[in-house]
Simulated assay, not measured.
Amino acid sequence: MTPPARHLSLSSEEDAALRRLELGAGINVKVRLRASIVRLNASGMTVPHLAQHFGRNPQSVHNDLDRYEQHGIPGLMDGRSSGPPRRITPELDQYLQEKLAEQRLWNSDLLAEALLERFGITVSRDAVRVRLLALGYSWKRGRYAPGQVPDPDVIHEHQASIETLKKGHWTANSPSSF
């Protein structure tokens, strides 16, 4: 015994909305296909004929019709993919925060290298940058400034070179020829 033919009935507004989906530029190909299946079924085409016409499994056609019956036009749309799993886990977040607490200038390339050395995980510098933004860090231009108070003996030893550099000339210790 064959199951009875399945036919949806559409109002003129529903048919017009499905037609706009079918012909709409920038609409996902799968959504356009599902809209066509629903419209052709409503016009009298059976599920086996639709499956043969579109080269699909009859169960897939039934699934498309079920989606439309249950959710209307939004049911024809694909949901968002969750994407690949995150490479930077909470453990790596903690490691990044520890590294940034050090008295050192870090950038996303150096942090990506540190993650590779410590955990063996290859993470792009852009992924590190995005994760740092999510953690509340922001990028500031690096500048030349001593991280700690310079040793007075070192300053005294190089005072002549420092003064020459401030004037924009070669240092006293540099070669005199170019």
Rank of each mutant, 00 (worst) to 15 (best):
I155C: 00
E157C: 05
T122W: 04
Q148I: 03
R131F: 05
Y144P: 02
D78K: 02
H156P: 00
A112P: 03
Q103S: 05
S138Q: 14
A112T: 10
R56G: 12
T89L: 11
K166A: 11
D126W: 01
N107C: 11
L165M: 13
A112H: 08
D109Q: 09
R86H: 11
E91D: 15
R56V: 15
R141L: 12
L133C: 04
L115S: 02
S138I: 11
Q159Y: 05
H62P: 00
D66F: 03
H156W: 06
P90C: 10
N57S: 15
G72W: 02
G72P: 01
S161M: 10
G72T: 03
L115T: 08
D66A: 06
R56I: 15
E157Y: 04
G55L: 15
Y95D: 09
H62L: 14
E91W: 08
Q148D: 03
Q59K: 15
Y137Q: 00
Q70R: 13
T89H: 10
S60P: 00
R86P: 13
A112R: 09
H71M: 03
L135A: 02
T164F: 01
W139I: 10
M77W: 00
H62I: 12
Y68M: 01
P85C: 14
E163V: 06
G142Q: 09
L96S: 02
L100I: 07
A172R: 06
I88D: 00
H158K: 06
D109S: 08
R87A: 11
W139P: 14
H158L: 09
Y137R: 00
W139G: 12
G55Q: 15
T171D: 05
P74Q: 04
S81N: 11
A112Y: 04
R143N: 10
T164P: 00
G120C: 08
L135T: 02
P152A: 11
H156N: 13
G142S: 13
R143E: 14
A172Q: 07
I162S: 06
S60H: 08
L135P: 01
E98P: 03
K166T: 04
A112S: 10
G55P: 13
R80D: 08
A134G: 08
Q159C: 04
Q97E: 14
I155W: 00
Y68W: 05
H158D: 08
H156V: 11
V154M: 04
L115D: 01
P85G: 15
R141S: 09
Y95K: 12
Q103K: 04
V130L: 13
S161W: 04
A172M: 07
G120D: 12
V130G: 02
V123D: 03
V61C: 09
E113M: 01
D151G: 07
V149D: 13
Q103G: 01
L65Y: 02
L96N: 00
S82R: 15
G136D: 06
Q148H: 03
V123S: 04
